[in-house]
Simulated scan of single mutants.
Amino acid sequence: MSLSEEDSTHRTQLVIFDCDGVLVESETITNHVFARLITEAGWPVTFEDCCAQLKGLSMKDCVAKIEAQLGRTLEPDWPDLYRDESYTALRAHVQAMPGAKEAIALIRAAGRKMCIASSGPMEKMEITLGSTGLMADFEGMVFNATMVAHGKPAPDLFLHAAHEMGVPPRAAIVIEDSPVGARAARAANMTCLGYIGGELKEENGLAREGAILIEDLCEVAHHL
């Protein structure tokens, strides 16, 4: 491989966005619903507890953690109850994260690829991205945890996204707001930008996972 070819595999070719808490301000909305329903199920938790212990995990992993705390299985329709109540709240209140549309425009202007890799279900992203006008920017470029064997903090989802986008992992950067996601990016051998401009800031946890902290999504331009 020539030096120029080697350099081209290292420079940023792909930006992988997390969705909740990065592109859309949804986590405050859904974690309030989550905390109430978990408490009603028998594990008293606060909004802050949910953010600290469950943020960034897939629903499957959240349910496993809740059931471990309860010492029993949840009702079979419990995830459906959470889905219905959280989706109703999202339709009414979700907004695009400040700077999201501008960051997308900067990435496009730089000629870089971009996609989404989220623990959230596709149906939820159709609501959040659709309601905020962001879906059109990512048609056919949205990946979620149901597509891989192991969700975050395993690297599977980010590696799958890079593969589908035709980019080697080391040429991708990830924008995440949770330590769980930052750990997954590190395991995938990808640079992680830790976004701390939203309402739920995980500055210390992101830093511990080696993320480069950014307060404005448009700072991604410095890493293209």
Rank of each mutant, 00 (worst) to 15 (best):
V220A: 02
S4M: 14
L90H: 00
L81P: 03
R112H: 02
N144E: 08
R208T: 12
A105G: 03
A64C: 07
R83H: 14
A96E: 05
G205N: 08
V24N: 02
H222S: 14
E199S: 13
E85S: 11
F158C: 02
L157Q: 01
V180Y: 11
H222Y: 13
E164W: 10
G151K: 08
I173S: 01
I104V: 08
S58K: 08
P79W: 08
C51S: 15
H163F: 13
I38V: 15
D156L: 05
D7S: 14
H10L: 15
T128I: 01
V24Y: 02
C115W: 02
I66P: 02
E85G: 06
P76E: 04
E5C: 10
I196Q: 09
T128K: 00
A171S: 06
I212E: 06
A105E: 07
P179R: 09
E203Q: 14
T88H: 13
F158P: 03
I175A: 02
C192H: 01
A161Y: 03
H160I: 02
A145D: 03
D18M: 09
D156I: 05
E176N: 05
H222V: 09
Q95P: 11
E209A: 04
E209M: 01
G210C: 04
S2Q: 12
R186P: 04
G194S: 00
C192K: 05
A187V: 02
M190W: 00
A110V: 05
A35G: 05
G71Y: 07
D216Q: 13
V94L: 11
P44I: 06
A185W: 00
A96V: 10
N144R: 07
H222Q: 13
L23G: 06
G133S: 07
R36C: 09
E123H: 10
I196W: 10
L23Q: 04
L193S: 03
V22L: 05
E209F: 03
T9H: 14
